[in-house]
Design a protein around this nucleic acid. Structure first.
Lengths: 166, 166
DNA sequence: ATTGAAAATATAGGCGA
DNA sequence: TCGCCTATATTTTCAAT
């Protein structure tokens, strides 16, 4: 079950699209009328562009960002994981296992000294210890992992820099 | 300008709140009526709770998640930064500088071998080189930094695991 | 592809329990 | 605080340009 190597074919985004995305990335509850005023387009025009971009996967999701501390997940950990065997099969298996874990907020497959960088959201250290057991010690293919405890979530977003031409 | 060490005082979240958050974290365009059906609450009740949680900062933002590749930011880099001097002033200065950079999507202040872990979104390696210049070489207080090139954004979210009691 | 108007939906606010 | 009811606003669809 390979994911598409590249994004599906679609019209390139124009300046209007980029301007709309820039707004929605910050606040996706901005009304289409307000966005329209801002980018000089009618509200329905804005709407059709949003729908198109959602369909094309340019907009991948619309989500509320929740403060982890307020739902009992006050500890963030970054884990650098090095695998024993880097065969495609085993790496894919690891990707799946990491992804499926609800405490793993982010998982990146990277070059360099580590193979994976994970961002993990947990209640406390005991909770994290539990997760390392589940994710790393049981795995068998994890050579070593390094735990970086987050003292300050200085900036946490999924925002992408967007330059609107014109 | 210190940020509050803890979240502002507020009523603890009940099972309804958590259930609502769980939905909104996945799709914040779910209508209040549908959420209400799901959690067994009227739509206005759902609305009041959402507004309260937004006011209290439990819900920090409502955002669209954009595919970076589709807006010309196809390269993600993770950077582990080690500082020369870890004095509060200099660390705070670094926090500010990293945060303000639009290419820095995430910035964590961490314990361990590195002081900061950054997730950076860039167009290409040339773009990244530019940013390292701006962020690290100019800084003066950066002892060393390690670049991890992301080959696969296996899982990228800000979702927090929420367990709804009952 | 855009506009403008009409219809359907969603959200906001008031009120009694 | 809830649920119901009503008012406002927003999103959506459609006809026309």
């Amino acid at each position: 079950m390979a994911r598409p190597r590249r994004s599906p074919i679609s019209n390139p985004l124009d300046a209007f699209d980029l301007a709309i995305l820039k707004v929605l990335q910050r606040d996706n509850r901005t009304s289409q009328r307000v966005i329209g005023d801002h980018v000089n387009l009618s509200a329905p025009a804005v709407q059709r562009r949003i729908r198109r971009m959602e369909g094309e996967g340019v907009i991948q999701a619309n989500v509320a960002v929740v403060d982890p501390a307020r739902v009992g997940q006050g500890l963030t950990i970054i884990v650098m994981v090095q695998m024993e065997n880097e065969s495609v099969e085993l790496v894919d298996k690891a990707k799946r296992e990491f992804s499926e874990d609800p405490n793993v907020q982010q998982c990146y497959y990277v070059t360099g000294p580590a193979d994976f960088a994970l961002v993990v959201s947990v209640e406390d250290m005991a909770d994290y210890e539990e997760i390392t057991r589940r994710l790393f010690f049981t795995n068998g293919n994890v050579k070593r992992f390094e735990t970086l405890v987050v003292m300050d979530r200085v900036k946490v977003s999924l925002q992408v820099p967007i330059n609107v031409p014109g």
